[in-house]
Simulated assay, not measured.
Amino acid sequence: MNDRAQLVLGAAALVAVALTPILFAYLQLGYSGDVAASGEYDAPVQNAQRVLSRGVHGAGSGVPESYRWQQRDAAVSTIRTDLQGTLDSLRSSRVESGTVYQVEYNESAAQSWANEHCPETRGPNRQFGACEAKQGVVVQNRDGETHVLAVAFDVRVTMERGRYETTLAVETRG
């Protein structure tokens, strides 16, 4: 009887190990089930916000280690290149169900965000260096490194039930 119990336990462990890659794939793809049932269909702007937030975070995460402040133009170009896949994916994500996303960078919204949100750069509470908005991307000099703070987008969603237009300033996390 003891051998049989060990065999069953070993088989269960083998099945658990075999299913692990499926679980990781499920979590990484961000599967959301039936869109109509989940309420996501009623919130196209929130969907765009989530997709863009993940993309901006991913694109901006390695910038400080790779780009000095003097290389900020190259950092902005890299961010925009890295985000291209996210933007293309969002633009084509719901076409078959009649929802079309149009996404463009917004330079003036990025500048407004920088003016309003950048930490103080003068006076007794000074913590960080210059903050600039370039091509819709807000970057800041922190100890000689380029840090991505936010990216501004114009998002237009056209659906059967109407059209939504908004400007999103998506902040990096962390």
Rank of each mutant, 00 (worst) to 15 (best):
Y105D: 04
G58K: 07
G60V: 06
L168G: 05
N141R: 04
A109W: 05
T146D: 07
Q49R: 14
G55L: 12
L168H: 02
N2T: 13
T172L: 03
D82E: 15
E165T: 12
W113L: 03
W113F: 12
G123F: 13
S93D: 12
I79H: 05
S97K: 05
W69S: 00
G174N: 13
E65Y: 09
Q140K: 01
A5V: 14
S38L: 07
E96V: 11
V139L: 03
D73T: 12
T158E: 13
T146V: 09
L87F: 04
V155S: 04
Y26D: 11
C131G: 07
F24G: 00
V138R: 03
V15N: 07
G162A: 08
T146E: 04
T146W: 02
A150T: 05
A152V: 04
G10Q: 05
G174L: 10
A13L: 15
A150D: 11
V100G: 01
M1V: 13
L23P: 00
A59L: 11
I79Q: 08
S97M: 12
V103D: 08
F153M: 03
T81P: 02
T20L: 15
V137P: 11
Y67P: 12
Q140H: 01
Q49C: 02
N106I: 09
D73A: 14
G174H: 09
A109F: 03
L7W: 08
R68G: 11
S89C: 00
P64G: 01
Y105H: 10
D143K: 06
D154P: 09
V95Q: 10
S61K: 01
D143N: 10
T86Q: 05
L149P: 00
E160C: 01
E104Q: 11
V45Y: 06
S53Y: 08
G129A: 14
E96M: 12
R91L: 08
V17H: 06
E132L: 13
V95K: 09
L19G: 00
A11S: 10
T86V: 14
F153G: 03
G123I: 14
Y164H: 13
Q111H: 02
Y105R: 06
E116F: 07
V95R: 09
G144E: 07
L149A: 05
A152L: 08
V45I: 15
G144Y: 04
W113R: 01
W113G: 00
A133N: 09
T172W: 10
A16F: 01
Y105T: 05
R91V: 10
G33Q: 05
G55C: 08
P124H: 08
